[in-house]
C-alpha cells in the first residue's frame, strides 16, 4: 500500500466551516474515482466529525479544527479530525446512538453515522486536551489505469 497524496487543513471552529471541510475532503479524494454514494458517505462522515468538534469540543467557543486526509493506491482513505477542546470523559458512552449532551435539536447520531458510513472509526480523547476521530474508508477500485494517469 503506497501513499498517493496527503493534505492537512486547519480552520476556525465556526459552523460555516462544516460545509467547507466536507467540500474540501470530497474534492481531495476525487483521484480515487469514488462513486456518488462513496463520496456522499465521506462527506457525511466528515460533516459529523467536524460538527462534533465545533459544538462539543469547543462548545461554540473559539478554537481550531484540523482535518488530515491521506489517500492510498489501494483505495484507502484515512481521515483524522482533531480538536483541542474539552475532550470526552467517557468515549464509549458518547458513541452510543441517541446519546447527546447538548439536547435541543441534536439527534445524538453523529458517531452512529460515522460508524456506518465508513469502514472503521477510532476515537481517542483526553479531558481538557481534545479529541481525535480517525476514520477509514475503502473506495472500490474500478479503473487502475485511470488512477495512474491522474497520479502522474
Amino acid at each position: 500500500m503506497e501513499l498517493l497524496n496527503e493534505m492537512t487543513l486547519t480552520f476556525a471552529s465556526k459552523s460555516m466551516n462544516e460545509n467547507f471541510a466536507r467540500a474540501a475532503v470530497s474534492a481531495f479524494v476525487l483521484p480515487l474515482d469514488p462513486t456518488i454514494g462513496e463520496l456522499a458517505d465521506i462527506k457525511t462522515a466528515v460533516s459529523e466529525a467536524v460538527t462534533n468538534a465545533i459544538i462539543h469540543g469547543y462548545e461554540y467557543g473559539e478554537g481550531s479544527v484540523t482535518v488530515n486526509v491521506k489517500i492510498y493506491d489501494n483505495g484507502k482513505v484515512s481521515i483524522k479530525v482533531k480538536d483541542k477542546g474539552k475532550g470526552i470523559a467517557d468515549v464509549q458512552q458518547a458513541m452510543e446512538p441517541l446519546f447527546s449532551t447538548v439536547g435541543g435539536e441534536r439527534a445524538g447520531l453523529g458517531f452512529a453515522v460515522m460508524q456506518s458510513f465508513t469502514d472503521s472509526l477510532k476515537v481517542t480523547s483526553k479531558v481538557n486536551c481534545g479529541t481525535t476521530v480517525t476514520m477509514e474508508k475503502y473506495i472500490i477500485r474500478r479503473s487502475r489505469a485511470q488512477i495512474a494517469d491522474k497520479n502522474s
Binding site: T44, A107, L109, G110, A112, V113
Partner: peptide, 12 residues
C-alpha cells in the same frame, strides 16, 4: 446533502 442535523430537524 444532509447529515444527522437534518434528522434532528425532522425530530424537532
Amino acid at each position: 446533502f444532509m447529515d444527522s442535523s437534518g434528522i434532528g430537524l425532522i425530530m424537532g
